[in-house]
Amino acid sequence: MEKFIFGYLMSLFFISSNIYSQSSNLSAKEIVAKADQKLRGKSNKAEISMEIIRPSWKREMSLKSWSKGEDFSLVLITAPAKDKGTVSLKRENELWNWMPSIERTIKISPSMMSQSWMGSDFTNDDLLKQSSIVLDYNHEIVGEEKIDELDCYKIKLIPKEDAAVVWGKILMWVSKEGFHQLKTEFYDEDEILINRMLGKEIRQMGDREIITKMIMIPVEDEGHKTVITYHKIEFDISLNDNFFSMQNMKRVR
């Protein structure tokens, strides 16, 4: 079943979101929107690795990813060997996996999409709802703090009443310069801290400076973390809609 979950990756960080602002909390919302937009672009192509770290073991996977707007994504697993060549294609609300060893395309059911993701510390809600940190929350600047020696806005996100989100509260530290999301804390409905996400290693990638390492740490479990590293990423590249086709899913490498 793990393979089916790979498909999820596509919704990970690449879905571009529409930014529209409300009159209330305009500046806080704008800051979050800018940070959110930073990693997305109109389209992008990336090479990424993900490490799942536990006290007694570690697993790593690598992939190539292409995405365009909110609707189209393609992910190719390049490591480990047992999953190499598996491709996931997302077109609007539909998701397919291509399993080269058995020459078969498998359509992913909606419930398969909603399970925990690859045993990592990212919950599916973190991954799927990432694009909604702008739309599903009310934002408020609650202070200013330094993170890794950079001046940051500290922003509190409280979900809107009708929003289907799992978190009760999110605290986010966004650098004043560059709008890097350097630290994020996820709280449950009882305001207990569950996960802490750190953004590290700001580097020039393509036309912009971005965070190239994201570390998700479950607060309760000592020695547990998931590290996502961007090795290469190009933004706003030209990708035809044809790229995200059943045909290309079987050809991409």
């Binding site: 079943m1 059911s109 419930s111 398969m112 909603s114 399970q115 925990s116 599916n124």
Partner: peptide, 10 residues
Amino acid sequence: VDYTFSSSLF
């Protein structure tokens, strides 16, 4: 018919 619960039970 297949269904996956959020707990990963398939």
